[in-house]
């Protein structure tokens, strides 16, 4: 059975137990779950894994199945338990015969178009100051961009690194907004 199939068979009771084990507050547990999943994917991707999302889900699946056995005795940072299991999952993955190296899927023109629409919507939702920072931050190319960013930082009375951090934080919010917008448009399709 492929890891994806195993993931699909994860029982809801196991998943609920996992969330409860992470945090009694369902909202906090959900946030923690998302953070752990993101970390697993980031680590697997940095190790050159072509299917990081699949292995991250397989890791979560395994942990969820074991929670019933360990929850009474486990001590320490729970998220680190995922790291240990992920190492095993990745190790097994490396031992599997490779059919061929997967290439990233080709660009989807509909998604691309939708991304543009969502970007417009999400930029509209930013505060005027945030919008200005983003517009100016992305307003030039290469060398010109570096010079422009210096000028923006000077105008705002902040250092280049602070400007970068501000712009990236706004950009991260934009990203979340766009992802939600895209999810909405995909369910609406």
């Amino acid at each position: 059975m492929s890891p994806a199939r195993q993931l699909k068979t994860l029982q809801k009771t196991d998943f609920d137990r996992l969330l409860l084990w992470l945090d009694p507050n369902p909202e906090h547990a959900g946030e923690l779950y998302e953070k752990i999943r993101w970390r697993l994917i980031a680590i697997l991707a940095s190790r050159g894994c072509c299917v990081p999302e699949e292995l991250a889900d397989e890791t979560i699946d395994r942990v969820a199945r074991r929670v019933a056995d360990i929850e009474a005795t486990y001590a320490g940072d729970k998220s680190l338990y995922f790291l240990g299991v992920m190492n095993n999952v990745h190790h097994e993955y490396l031992k599997r015969p490779r059919l061929s190296e997967l290439a990233p899927p080709p660009e989807d023109s509909i998604v691309k178009e939708q991304t543009y629409l969502c970007l417009d919507k999400c930029i509209e939702k930013l505060t005027p100051h945030a919008r200005e920072v983003i517009e100016q931050y992305y307003a030039a190319e290469r060398r010109a961009k570096i010079n422009l960013r210096k000028r923006i930082a000077t105008a705002l009375g902040i250092s280049n690194s602070t400007l970068r951090l501000r712009a990236l934080r706004i950009r991260a919010k934009l990203q979340v907004c766009i992802e939600r917008c895209l999810e909405g448009s995909q369910t609406g399709r």
Partner: peptide, 28 residues
């Protein structure tokens, strides 16, 4: 080799390209 294998990151690249196309002059 390492970065583009997650859907979230592919979307980040898409958004980065869209932002640059929206706000940066195309000529360069």
């Amino acid at each position: 080799q390492t970065f583009r294998f997650t859907a979230a990151r592919r979307n980040q690249i898409e958004v980065s390209m869209a932002l640059n196309e929206c706000f940066a002059p195309l000529a360069d």
